[in-house]
């Protein structure tokens, strides 16, 4: 794994917004993704994941703010060669054969790596002579991934790449992807709404909701910043006094018991409270259930424009 240190980070957004005719898809987004990370971009459908990825791929132009890719504007010519993008619907020419599709990559990319591309296609058991239009969804994804990996980009943007893969091919494709990341230090952003898909894969996390970033940073740090506490419910309902000095993300009451996901201000002690460390999934579920919880950015996800929350 090569240590690619890019002071500006792979992605850096500030004041980023995108408005479609039907309204704002992204608003006031600011975050930083260091180079060489495997980042999960999580959020419910319509939360702005695809818009953010399309902006990073240079397919869309921001309405407000900027999105820098390795320090350069995302629609600058130099940025294009450093980024590979697999869109959710995996656009490919249906009348091309798989071999023709790879040749397209070879003809249009100076850094093209035919061997890697062919290996990915072989790993997915897709014949080179097959017409793209005759492939199954999973096989198409495999060809799209081969295109992205053959490009030898420094950042791969994958929009729900595994949604139509069977478990075996998903494992293989993920293995190929991680091997590439291991060998070349390639950063990866994978959007998904099924976090379990990325368990053990991602080390960085972006949680989106309503066109904004709600959690950003190292997966470990985000997990470590939260506690799951269980204790007695307050008499009149509402947040018990014992939790008042912490940032409460979400509370759930069962009978006389209350379970809360909190970001502790200090040691979250208190008589009668059981404190455990939540799993990453617990944290994400907590935030997804509580759309109004305050956002959290860990230190290396902050840009100068990011309001400091944690």
């Amino acid at each position: 794994m090569t240590d690619e240190i890019d002071a500006s980070g792979a992605l850096e957004a500030s004041g980023l917004g995108k408005k479609y005719r039907r309204g704002w898809a992204l608003r006031d987004v600011a975050f930083r993704l260091p180079a060489g990370r495997i980042c999960a971009l999580v959020g419910p459908n319509g939360s702005g994941k695809s818009t953010l990825l399309s902006l990073a791929a240079g397919l869309l132009t921001p309405t407000t703010g900027t999105l820098r890719v390795f320090g350069r504007s995302s629609d600058a010519p130099g940025a294009r060669a450093r980024i590979a993008f697999v869109a959710q619907d995996k656009p490919l020419y249906p009348r091309f054969s798989v071999a023709d599709t790879l040749r397209l990559g070879r003809e249009l990319n100076p850094r093209w790596d035919q061997k890697t591309a062919e290996r990915v296609v072989a790993e997915g058991e897709v014949p080179l002579s097959a017409r793209v239009g005759s492939l199954s969804g999973g096989q198409r994804t495999c060809v799209a991934l081969a295109m992205a990996l053959g490009k030898r980009a420094d950042l791969l943007l994958l929009d729900e790449p595994m949604s139509d893969q069977d478990p075996l091919r998903r494992h293989r494709m993920m293995g190929v992807l991680m091997a590439e990341a291991a060998e070349r230090g390639t950063g990866v952003v994978i959007s998904t709404h099924v976090l379990a898909e990325l368990d053990g894969v991602c080390d960085y996390l972006l949680l989106m909701g309503g066109g904004r970033i709600r959690l950003a940073g190292e997966a470990d740090a985000i997990q470590a910043a939260h506690r799951l506490v269980t204790g007695p419910r307050a008499a009149g309902g509402g947040t018990p006094d014992a939790l008042a000095r912490h940032t409460v993300v979400e509370t759930r009451a069962t009978g006389r018991q209350l379970t809360a996901l909190i970001r502790p201000a200090d040691a979250p002690a208190g008589d009668g409270w059981i404190v455990t460390e939540p799993s990453l999934e617990d944290v994400l579920l907590g935030y997804l259930r509580a759309p109004d919880a305050p956002p959290l950015f860990t230190a290396d996800a902050r840009t100068t424009g990011t309001e400091v929350e944690a």
């Binding site: 794994m1 990370r37 495997i38 494992h171 293989r172 993920m174 293995g175 190929v176 992807l177 991680m178 091997a179 990341a181 291991a182 060998e183 053990g200 894969v201 991602c202 080390d203």
Partner: peptide
Amino acid sequence: PTAREVVAATAINPNTVL
């Protein structure tokens, strides 16, 4: 095994292996 070999077989994050 190299990080590449491990992650190719297990599909986990290479940083984890490192």
